[in-house]
Nucleic acid binder design. Sequence first.
DNA 1: ATAGTTTTGTGAATAATTTCACTATAAAAT
DNA 2: ATTTTATAGTGAAATTATTCACAAAACTAT
Lengths: 218, 218
Amino acid sequence: MANKKCIIRLLRYKNALHRLHSLGFVKVFSDNLADAVGVTASQVRKDFSLFGICGNKRGGYQIEALLEKLNHILGKNEQQKVVIVGGGNIGAALMKYKGFEKEGVKIAACFDIDPAKYHHKEGDIPVLPLEELKNFSRANHIRIGIIAVPDIAAQQVLDLMLSAGIKGIVNFAPIRLRASSDCFINNVNLVLELETVIYFIVNGLEKSIAEIHEEQKS
Amino acid sequence: MANKKCIIRLLRYKNALHRLHSLGFVKVFSDNLADAVGVTASQVRKDFSLFGICGNKRGGYQIEALLEKLNHILGKNEQQKVVIVGGGNIGAALMKYKGFEKEGVKIAACFDIDPAKYHHKEGDIPVLPLEELKNFSRANHIRIGIIAVPDIAAQQVLDLMLSAGIKGIVNFAPIRLRASSDCFINNVNLVLELETVIYFIVNGLEKSIAEIHEEQKS
DNA sequence: ATAGTTTTGTGAATAATTTCACTATAAAAT
DNA sequence: ATTTTATAGTGAAATTATTCACAAAACTAT
Ligand SMILES: NC(=O)c1ccc[n+]([C@@H]2O[C@H](COP(=O)([O-])OP(=O)(O)OC[C@H]3O[C@@H](n4cnc5c(N)ncnc54)[C@H](O)[C@@H]3O)[C@@H](O)[C@H]2O)c1
Ligand SMILES: NC(=O)c1ccc[n+]([C@@H]2O[C@H](COP(=O)([O-])OP(=O)(O)OC[C@H]3O[C@@H](n4cnc5c(N)ncnc54)[C@H](O)[C@@H]3O)[C@@H](O)[C@H]2O)c1
């Protein structure tokens, strides 16, 4: 029922609703939302139905109420604190990005083994020695971590994160990590994202499929 | 038949085979590959069967021959040139990354509207004024582009890319782009990747589903 | 040679996901 | 008030994707 694809669509609906709301819209119909997100209207209604979300026949959905419900389902009512391990290219890009706060995500700290990366300035996200990851995560109840280290280091970083109580991971290293099933790993492989596009272009398939989103990647 | 998910799995098989090959392995069985990639052995065989790839009963697959076939199918025999538009956080991280060349991907140039970003040094990837995108792309037969500009600028950048003959796009801006169906857009939404993990952790679902890959995101 | 074993290749079965199509209902129009 | 119309909600149908299960082939050992 509440499968991964469906959750990703709910997150998309939520983002689209945010935009509509900030544009001053008050209500929305299943087909507006479908259009904004790139799915069919029945898909939207089916997804909502699965989570017991209902609107008004002929009246559509009240955006505020809908956002409220989605945030509740998606656990976005409280701000989530996240740590990054690896303050290199990707890690630094993520730290500089201003878009997380808006979505209720707070990058609490970054950890690295390279002392040249350490950084501590009021207002900035601190970059700390890797040894402090465990204490920091425990003290701050961190449950989510981002792996942005070279692939050879990724497994040991994962193990350390798990031992620090982190259970949810976004992994940018292009390798398959081994873990107990008591954690959730979301692998993001940017090279693969590019290679996928290359495949469709090289084979002249750009006409058949116009667009892919995360959820079409299973 | 040859759906997106299947292609992404083929790309994964290819990557796993690369690793195995560089470790000195010569042949591989469907279940080794399945294990390396995180799918079932029948899935591997079914995927291969779909593309007419065959191995030897009881002998598995010769890694070199298999890589050859996969590279042919995936269009990885010739190096692919790619441009980036937006030399900010993400754009810069991608330019500094050394892992693309290994996969036959060459970042040919980056384009930006901010003159402070312009850069031209022998050996480095040049950062050029946006106005030059069209000529550069035409002259270098660029077919693939990466959008790494703020969301408000993404649509106009896409339109420009399309007018420059670029047909395959990886888009990092978190908005739905509108385009003719004569192009292929792969949307990468990093905030969503994080939010997905947050959902599973906040709802205590980390036990049920241990790992997701791109292809499970549809 | 022959028997035994392992692994592929694939049609059939199953499972998962999406779309269809229709009913119920609320709002708008008359 | 009554009719019309637009849209939600949802089982059923269709489609798509995955797994099963087993015959065919090829290697190994005797
Ligand atoms: N940069 C990109 O565009 C890009 C693209 C695709 C994939 N990736 C992947 O993302 C990951 C990070 O890439 P990057 O370009 O940011 O790398 P990077 O080399 O720029 O940064 C890696 C950082 O990790 C630190 N580090 C190394 N070992 C560590 C350890 N054991 N514990 C803590 N920190 C450690 C290093 O000091 C460095 O600061 C890599 O796995 C890479 O393959 C990056
Ligand atoms: N940095 C991240 O970690 C991150 C995370 C999630 C999403 N994103 C998304 O990725 C995109 C890029 O993010 P970023 O952090 O790199 O942004 P950034 O602001 O650091 O960089 C954007 C770059 O694009 C350039 N630019 C602006 N308008 C342009 C135009 N019309 N043509 C060409 N260049 C233009 C700017 O000069 C700047 O160099 C954004 O859409 C952002 O939402 C980034």
